[in-house]
Design a protein around this nucleic acid. Structure first.
Length: 271
DNA sequence: TACGTTCTTCACATGAGCGG
DNA sequence: CCGCTCATGTGAAGAACGTA
């Protein structure tokens, strides 16, 4: 019962703030759900390697599934090392994809699109992609289809309401587009944390600021900007539209960071 | 071994809400 | 306003665990 103290410095047994959620995740094992996972955490089993140690000490001797679990945990360690996000995408329930965020942060993209509207005949005007360091706009009739390459080899894609809007729209425009295996839709993640409303409303609630130039810009204004560029050759309108899109995309990152920590806190229980 | 309990999983229906 | 998803709730089934 004291082996866990060798592994971690403190006697707090549950995964701590700052721990990586994915490597302390067990709900991707068969017949392991929220309850079982939490029970293991309480016993001090707060990482895959910890679990294997417990296994070697005969901790799970009475469980029929122990060898299946062991294989999957060893596999999890290997697949994470190989950066195989699909492995986790297949085994984790969708609403738990957020757990992968920290481990795959280096291969995460934030995405938001602008269109001429929401009807079937409307089309994409701008795809904005932010990789955590650099923002890149892809513009209709310029470099729009290059956005496909920007997604190549990424592990996680983060959007706001993208599962209902951005991704279906993109797939309609580019039937062969590749999407990273793990899609985190902040709209639903934040709603579980009690934050609902559109992106701008949530930004305000969390104190995320926008540039003066675009702070008053509404969605309809964004559609208008494209029209001013397309039919009036107004390059400044396009510039402003891109600036608007940039704000949308870049702000997804602090929101994701926030949601990750809040979800981690919640899932560990109030301790 | 036998039986009761706990937990996960699946299916289905309902309702909600945000995207331009 | 429409379309598209996801969350939530309920219930049932069954696997696995605990207990005696």
């Amino acid at each position: 019962m004291h082996w866990h103290k060798c592994e971690t410095q403190k006697n707090t047994m549950q995964p701590k703030e700052g721990d990586c959620m994915l490597t302390s995740t067990f709900i991707h094992l068969p017949r392991v759900g929220e309850k079982t996972e939490r029970r293991w955490w309480k016993m001090g089993i707060n990482s895959w390697r910890n679990w294997l140690k417990a296994y070697d000490m005969g901790w799970f001797a009475k469980f029929q599934l122990r060898s299946k679990w062991r294989k999957l945990i060893e596999r999890s360690i290997a697949e994470l090392e190989n950066g195989n996000a699909s492995f986790f995408a297949e085994l984790l329930p969708r609403q738990e994809y957020w757990r992968c965020y920290r481990e795959f942060k280096g291969r995460t993209v934030f995405l938001d699109i602008e269109t001429t509207g929401r009807s079937p005949w409307d089309y994409i005007t701008v795809v904005g992609i932010y990789d955590g360091h650099r923002y890149t706009p892809f513009v209709h009739n310029h470099n729009l289809n290059k956005c496909i390459e920007a997604l190549h080899d990424k592990a996680i894609i983060v959007t706001f309401y993208g599962s209902a809007f951005d991704l279906p729209f993109l797939r309609r425009s580019f039937p062969n587009i590749y999407f990273p295996p793990i899609h985190i839709d902040l709209c639903y993640l934040l709603k579980r944390l009690g934050y609902k409303g559109d992106l701008k409303a949530i930004e305000r609630q969390l104190g995320i600021r926008r540039d003066k130039e675009i702070v008053g810009l509404s969605v309809m204004d964004a559609v208008q900007l494209w029209m001013r560029y397309k039919h009036g050759n107004d390059v400044n309108a396009l510039r402003l539209l891109i600036k608007y899109n940039r704000a949308d995309v870049v702000n997804l990152k602090p929101l994701m960071d926030f949601a990750y920590h809040e979800m981690a806190r919640r899932v560990r229980g109030v301790s």
